[in-house]
Amino acid sequence: MMKIGVLGLQGAVREHVRSIEENGAEAVVVKWPEQLDELDGLILPGGESTTMRRLIDRYGFMEPLRSFGESGRPMFGTCAGLILLASDIVGYDQPHLGLMNITVERNSFGRQKESFEAELFIKDIADDYNAVFIRAPHIVSVGVGTEVLAECDGRIVAARDRHYLGCSFHPELTEDHRIARYFIDMAKASKASLANS
């Protein structure tokens, strides 16, 4: 069985756990860096990116998370998690993990009262996806080799760069588990190819 972790420092952790389990994989709530070793993939959930970053630093997660990504195991960031993964953040000198080749802008749809739901086409995943955007970031531009998976109102809101998947909305807040399914398939494929290499 595939073992997928959810970084459990803060945010919508249990919703991601449910969506992993709905897809028949095992979910692990990750509170300490040692737990990363046993995983086939890792989800960085929605929450407050500033808070998560503080806790990542305090518990020595920075390097272990980077090496997790560099080992070729898939990572999926939603909303705050997307900001953590990005290689560039508008208005900031330094990224957080800096693993995924994209530039993001925080809170780019406005404050909470501008938060919204919208129907999306997501390449290879769904053509009728109800996405929930909460104080959401968006992807300003993608690097070479990064594929745009979805746009909303002319802004990029989901993308994939090698084994990194990211979206600016919250798939975990709906009953539609197709994106988690897609991510678990990524983890399966990478597990197979890592085993063969």
């Binding site: 945010g11 919508a12 929605g46 705050a80 009262k113 919204f116 739901e117 929930v132 109102d153 919250h170």
Partner: peptide, 20 residues
């Protein structure tokens, strides 16, 4: 695009979980 839905309003609080 729909703003102010239950999902968006409750979801905002979900993102605060485990926090202070």
């Amino acid at each position: 695009m729909n703003t102010g839905t239950d999902r968006v309003k409750r979801g905002m609080a979900e993102m605060q979980k485990g926090g202070v």
